[in-house]
Write a protein that binds this DNA or RNA. Structure first.
Length: 580
DNA sequence: CTTTCTCTAAAGTGCACTGTGGCCAGTGC
């Protein structure tokens, strides 16, 4: 039993109560309880075991009893009983967007549908469309949602598996027979979505390494385990491939398995032009080639042999990196330690988990010079957005705070909603009192591309809008971006000197890395923002920097690489004077 | 189910969007 299992049990109860059509406030009490457990400062498990949960706001008598039972016995009869009322496969239906408890219950009660497979059949044979409350469009929409989900099968968000990837890498490196190890593949190229992790090790005892991997406790299934190669599937569904090679082959294998395929095709083509053949094991001479083969000890030696500088893995997509390498214009990519602060952070004033003071302390302990506070505006009702009055008093609070604290400087900002017609959620008078402002779309996602583009352009034209937050609203593997003409937006950002955010939330990573080089070439600045709702979320910045690097961004392109004085100067200028 | 300056009773995030079924219900933010 641990904190997460306690919280998960409450979430499970909430879901089951929803299915049963229980009082929505009761359901919400369990959901809220789960969040309180997750974010509680202190050893919540011990408190539950010792029956000392009294006084925690939101955990009343009923939740206390259930948490104590869970903590003491590891089980909860109440939850077991609830679960027994429905088939387990029914819960996968909740992962389809557009289906909630009411519809799932109707499908189950009327059609005996209890799995995605059954639902798909029921949509095809027309029985869903005949159901009361459903129609032909509903059936179509459900089929679309099933299709969408299927297309993500076996894919993972990089941010969700980074910690695991590093743990596994360290474990491989700790093996006495492991001389070198690296994660190659799309992980090394900083892709935002992965379908597997490709580990590469240099060793004199390859079969020891493949055997070692196949015995990892996280392994659910061993697909293959041979002399030099192993593939396993972990219990979370992620596939791990391991290649074990000699020290001599290692640089070639690292280059080869890092990809991308397109990048490697071009590299081999260039080798052939020099009379060399290149594969994952080494160089070999073509007939025309006379003289010794190049000496290769590192990956950089391979590029050097082909008269190129080493190309950083995140740029290897054959999207202009060879031309830049030849011209000597490869970027000096941004690094995490270049960041001096960040904008777009929430507090308990809206939907953040920590107070202003707590966020300040965390930023301070991370060595940030400044921290922008940007809580939601009042139209984001679901996020407890601030009305004009509350924002006004928050601005004053931040001013006082800065007077009484010497450390990290706080900037008073807002994540202000861009309303449907492109106007902002606060009037210009109030916005002008802020140090900065992030403007984001949180409602009416389904406008046409033309309307949505015009809406955001209108916001960028506002002199008080410093930057646009999570530009496309996408949620990786979950929700598509809304329709938007991004080249037009980038042009407008350049013209109006509006910064574009790179939102580092692992689920967003928005704007997409594929657009940043275009933006950079037009002189648009990027702000790498954690969108922190919890003090731990400052860790997202590391992921954001990976994506920024993939987008060719350098220190000079990143707004929050400026130091405090430079940022103050930047923000004090009228927008038209901000980019040069 | 929890909270509460109406505390053995009542109130508890609001709105836009979609599709269906007749001016509403469910979903998602």
């Amino acid at each position: 039993m641990n904190r997460e299992k306690l919280a998960q049990s409450l979430d499970d109860i909430a879901l089951l109560l929803e299915l049963k059509g229980e009082n929505p406030f009761k359901t919400r009490a369990y959901k809220t309880g789960a969040e309180i457990i997750r974010n509680y400062d202190g050893d919540i498990l011990s408190l539950a075991q010792a029956e000392e949960l009294d006084g925690i706001k939101g955990i009343g008598k009923a939740l206390q009893e259930k948490l104590t039972t869970l903590a003491q016995t590891g089980e909860l009869p109440y939850l077991k009983e609830l679960k027994g009322e429905f088939p387990p496969s029914l819960f996968e239906l909740f992962t389809l967007s557009g289906l909630g408890p009411k519809k799932i219950k109707a499908l189950y009660d009327e059609l005996k549908v209890s799995s995605i497979a059954q639902l798909e059949t029921a949509c095809h044979n027309g029985s869903v469309a005949e159901l009361k409350g459903f129609g032909s469009k509903s059936a179509e929409k459900i089929l679309k949602a099933i299709e969408y989900k299927k297309s993500f099968l076996g894919l993972f968000r990089t941010g969700d598996v980074m910690a695991l990837a590093q743990t596994l890498l360290e474990r491989l490196r700790s093996h006495p027979s492991c001389l070198m190890a690296e994660i190659a593949g799309s992980y090394r190229r900083n892709k935002e979505i992965l379908h597997d992790l490709d580990f590469l090790v240099a060793t004199r005892a390859p079969s020891e390494m493949t055997d070692f991997l196949s015995r990892f406790e996280e392994v659910d299934q061993v697909l293959s385990c041979g002399e030099t190669k192993a593939s396993v599937i972990l219990e979370n569904g992620l596939q791990i491939d391991l290649r074990a090679v000699s020290v001599k082959e290692y640089p070639f294998a690292l280059q080869y398995f890092s990809g991308s395929k397109e990048h490697n095709v071009e590299l081999r083509h260039r080798a052939l032009k020099q009379g060399l053949s290149l594969n994952e094991y080494g160089f070999s001479a073509q007939e025309a080639h006379s003289g010794a083969l190049p000496i290769v000890e590192t990956e950089a030696d391979i590029y050097r042999a082909l008269r190129l500088p080493w190309i950083p893995p995140e740029l290897r997509e054959n999207r202009g990196e060879y031309e830049a390498a030849e011209e000597g214009t490869l970027p000096h990519l941004i690094q995490l330690d270049h960041l001096r602060g960040c904008f777009h952070n929430h507090t308990t004033a809206s939907d953040g988990q920590h107070s202003l003071e707590e966020m300040y302390e965390e930023a301070e302990s991370l060595g940030m010079e400044y921290l922008g506070i940007s809580d939601h505006s009042h139209s984001s009702f679901q996020a407890n957005g601030l009305n004009a009055e509350r924002l006004q008093s928050q601005i004053e609070e931040i001013q006082h705070f800065n007077h009484s604290h010497d450390g990290c400087h706080l900037f008073a900002g807002s994540e202000v909603d861009i309303l449907k017609n492109g106007s902002l959620d606060y009037n210009d008078e109030l916005l002008s009192q802020l140090d900065y402002c992030v403007a984001s779309v949180h409602q009416a996602f389904s406008l046409s591309e033309k309307e949505m583009t015009a809406r955001i352009i209108k916001a960028m034209e506002n002199p008080h809008v410093t930057m646009i937050g999570h530009l496309t609203g996408r949620l990786l593997l979950k929700r598509e971006p809304y329709a938007l003409n991004i080249p037009k937006i980038i042009d407008c950002a350049a013209e109006t000197h509006t910064v574009i955010e790179l939102n580092c939330n692992p689920r967003r990573l928005d704007m997409d890395w594929r657009w940043w080089k275009t933006a950079k070439d037009k002189g648009v600045q990027c702000s790498i923002n954690p969108d922190a709702h919890h003090r731990d979320h400052f860790q997202f910045l590391a992921l954001g920097v990976r994506v920024a690097r993939k987008g060719w961004l350098e220190k000079k392109d990143i707004l929050n690489s400026l130091n405090l004085n430079e940022i103050k100067d930047f923000l004090s200028l009228p927008k038209e004077k901000r980019f040069h």
